[in-house]
């Protein structure tokens, strides 16, 4: 089974985010970077598919050279090879352009299944998987919290508001992953894995290397652009309910405050 995992590197979820002086990007120098947690779930599911059906797991990613670290981690976890599209033109464009660029690479890998995080914890746009499936003309099953495959079809469970849906598609298909650490429990890279990862193939490509027309990518082709970032609204300072009060006093004071001040009960 040929499996492709689309992987993005994102700032660690603990990071302090500061707006850069241009007002529309973030200060990236001092950030710690990780594999987008949802892509890590996708990778874990992909590695389990490989363990069951054989074949190989290829990583496809885009971004600057810092992304190599995330890719090496994925290779150390058990992926076999990787392609990184590193081209500054992509950074000026939008997601549609980036996915279009990746779709060429993905097609060449001739996958049976593509696994991708349902969203990325940076710009949280939840679009990459669906867009890739559209460019390939494939079905996609979104937000999987379980996955089974017999090698010819794939079945997932997907949570919707107030319930669950079970979806099935014949392969080739694309699956995006939701869920949580408790569901996917992604493996850690082992020490031998880390050693082996250093020798696994990692191809670096520019848009020109891929034979793509640069005019179709970058700022001039973008449909949507981020024009400004702003900090979250300040919450007015809260109030600790009077520490002198007895327990019952605090309880009745909270009921009063929620009813009379906040008017939420």
């Amino acid at each position: 089974m040929n499996i492709v995992v689309m992987l993005k590197q994102t700032p660690d979820t603990e990071s302090v985010i500061r707006i850069a002086s241009n007002g529309k990007s973030i200060v990236a120098d001092d950030l710690k970077w990780i594999i987008n947690p949802y892509d890590e779930f996708a990778l874990e599911a992909a590695l389990r598919l490989k363990e069951k059906h054989g074949g190989k797991v290829s990583i496809v990613s885009y971004g600057p050279q810092r992304v190599v670290e995330a890719i090496r981690t994925a290779l150390a976890m058990g992926a076999d090879d990787a392609v990184l599209i590193d081209d500054p033109v992509l950074a000026e464009g939008d997601l549609l352009g980036a996915v279009k660029a990746m779709s060429g690479v993905v097609k060449e890998l001739n996958p049976d299944i593509i696994c991708s995080g349902a969203r990325a914890v940076d710009y949280d746009q939840a679009q990459r998987g669906a867009m890739m499936a559209e460019f390939l003309g494939w079905p996609h099953l979104a937000l999987a919290v379980s996955l089974e495959s017999d090698g010819t079809k794939v079945t997932i469970k997907r949570p919707i508001e107030g319930g669950n849906v079970t979806l099935e598609a014949s392969l080739p298909a694309l699956v995006t992953f939701g869920g949580s650490h408790s569901i996917w429990n992604p493996r850690y890279a082992s020490l031998p894995g880390i050693m082996k990862a250093k020798k696994k193939p990692l191809a670096m490509k520019s848009l020109a290397d891929l034979g793509l027309n640069l005019a179709e990518f970058g700022g001039s082709s973008a449909k949507i652009l981020i024009t400004a970032l702003e900090p979250p609204p300040q919450r007015p300072a809260g109030r600790i309910l009077n520490g002198d009060l007895e327990l019952e006093g605090k309880a009745s004071e909270l009921v009063r405050a929620l009813h009379e001040e906040a008017r939420v009960i």
């Binding site: 700032p11 979820t13 990071s15 302090v16 985010i17 707006i19 973030i26 914890v121 940076d122 710009y123 949280d124 981020i226 024009t227 400004a228 970032l229 702003e230 900090p231 979250p232």
Partner: peptide, 9 residues
Amino acid sequence: IFAGKCFAW
């Protein structure tokens, strides 16, 4: 964006 630590327009 970034888990509500910032907003994008």
